[in-house]
């Protein structure tokens, strides 16, 4: 059997440079989309999972991964999309959540979706940190976000829904 020239950790480190196409301040690694790397006679296989089933960014992410690995000599490599286990906002790292906040997106409050998702929670304004905010629309510019407005600083902002 051929020996892999790169370890899983090294590959993850390389792929950490890839930003989420829709939220460029966080990487696909921080979002929890990178699940695993396997090695066989056919080469490397990177396992990724979609955040939302219809996420249009998945195609771009797949291409980005292939290009990045190619550039770093990790070849041949393929990308495999898996649904199991289903992605959850739990996998988003604390660093990612902090970055989202700085970017103006309120990070997901809850862990995995349970019934209390729809309870009236206090979503903190990422701009002035006020808790006095109101939901304008449960659906926003991308499938993963809702629209909110802060009653104190009056700024509108997006909230990354728990999933």
């Amino acid at each position: 059997m051929v020996k892999p020239s790169h370890t899983k950790e090294e590959i993850f480190a390389i792929l950490s440079a890839i930003a989420d196409p829709e939220i460029p301040v966080v990487s696909i690694y921080e979002m929890g989309m990178l699940r695993d790397v396997t090695f066989s006679d056919k080469g490397y296989e990177v396992i990724i999972t979609p955040t939302y089933s219809g996420c249009p960014a998945m195609g771009i992410i797949e291409q980005d991964i292939k290009m990045m690995l190619d550039k770093n000599g990790v070849t041949p490599a393929t990308v495999k999309l898996v649904y199991d286990p289903a992605w959850t906002t739990d996998w988003m790292s604390d660093v990612a959540k902090e970055k989202l906040k700085k970017y103006g997106i309120a990070p997901p409050l809850h862990s995995s979706c349970t019934q209390d998702v729809f309870a009236h929670n206090i979503i903190e304004c990422p701009h002035c940190h006020s808790g006095d905010t109101v939901m304008i629309s449960r659906f926003g510019s991308t499938a993963c976000k809702s629209l909110y407005q802060c009653n104190d600083c009056k700024e509108p902002f997006e909230y990354f829904k728990c999933h």
Binding site: Y52, S53, Y83, D84, P85, F139
Partner: peptide, 21 residues
Amino acid sequence: DTTLAAIAAKTIKEVRYHNAH
């Protein structure tokens, strides 16, 4: 069927939002 179960697990999170709406 693990594939169906996985797709269902993904779908249920989304459907919950559709239904609430």
